[in-house]
Computed example of a mutant assay.
Amino acid sequence: MEVGILTSIIEIDESFVEGSSEKIRSQVREYERGDRQAFDLEIATPDGILGDVMDAMAEIPYGETRSYGDLASALETSPIAVGQACGRNPVPILVPCHRVVGSDGSLNGYSAADGVATKRRLLEHEAREQKTVQTQLQTDS
């Protein structure tokens, strides 16, 4: 299924997702509006390195990034294997491969529509929304 987000169209293989197309689209719209930071959808991950990398990516908090090397160290594999698995992620956005960057912070690549431009927009969106959330928190004075 195709899902529009931040001026891009991203292909999501809904066979990996427990839930209707409308539920997926609704949650992506909430994410785009800044009303959702985590998806409430059951995602099936395949066996092997792709599933291992998808599980690791799913643990990266909203508004944060990890490097390919960070994930590779945790999974005892190579950064190249992690990058290849990120590129095969069948459910971008839902499993946030956009949060995986180079060790120097470079964006490197993104398999979804418009490539690195979409990855940049998603990371900037999360940074803006994260800042909005933080500034709305009351402090004890």
Rank of each mutant, 00 (worst) to 15 (best):
R25W: 05
R99W: 00
Q84F: 04
Q136R: 15
C97Q: 04
V3R: 10
D114F: 12
S8W: 09
R121Q: 06
E22I: 07
T65K: 07
R66G: 01
R120S: 11
E18R: 15
L123A: 11
C86P: 01
S103E: 14
A74M: 04
G69F: 03
E59H: 13
L94W: 02
L107S: 02
L123E: 02
D104Y: 06
K119P: 01
S8L: 01
G83Q: 13
Q136H: 11
R33N: 13
H98P: 00
I49K: 10
E59F: 07
I12V: 09
D140G: 06
L75S: 05
G102S: 14
V95N: 11
G4C: 07
K119Y: 07
I5K: 03
G63Q: 00
G69D: 09
A58F: 07
R66L: 02
V53D: 04
S20W: 06
E42V: 13
G19S: 14
S106I: 08
E11T: 12
V82N: 07
E64K: 11
Q130L: 01
R66Q: 12
R33C: 10
E64A: 13
L6Q: 08
A58T: 07
G69Q: 15
A113V: 00
S21V: 14
Y62P: 01
G34N: 08
L123I: 14
K131C: 08
I80L: 15
E129Y: 06
I60M: 04
I93H: 03
A117F: 10
S26G: 14
R29P: 04
L41W: 04
I10S: 04
A113F: 02
D47V: 15
R33Y: 12
G63D: 01
Y68Q: 11
L6D: 06
V116D: 06
I5Y: 00
E64I: 00
T77W: 13
G4K: 15
Q136T: 05
R128H: 09
V17Y: 06
T45N: 07
A117T: 14
P46L: 04
E11K: 15
S103H: 02
G34E: 09
E59I: 00
A56N: 02
G48H: 11
E126C: 02
C86Y: 04
T7W: 05
L75D: 00
R128F: 06
G34F: 05
T139D: 09
Q130P: 00
A81N: 15
G34R: 08
R88C: 06
F16N: 13
T45P: 06
S111R: 15
E124M: 03
S141A: 13
A127N: 09
C86F: 03
P96E: 02
A81M: 12
I43N: 03
L122P: 02
K131H: 14
Y110K: 06
G105L: 04
D35I: 08
D70F: 03
E22G: 10
Q37W: 00
T132E: 10
S111W: 06
D70C: 09
S73R: 15
S8K: 05
L107G: 01
K23M: 12
L122C: 09
A72E: 09
E76Y: 13
Q136N: 13
S26V: 08
D70A: 04
F16H: 15
R121W: 06
D55E: 12
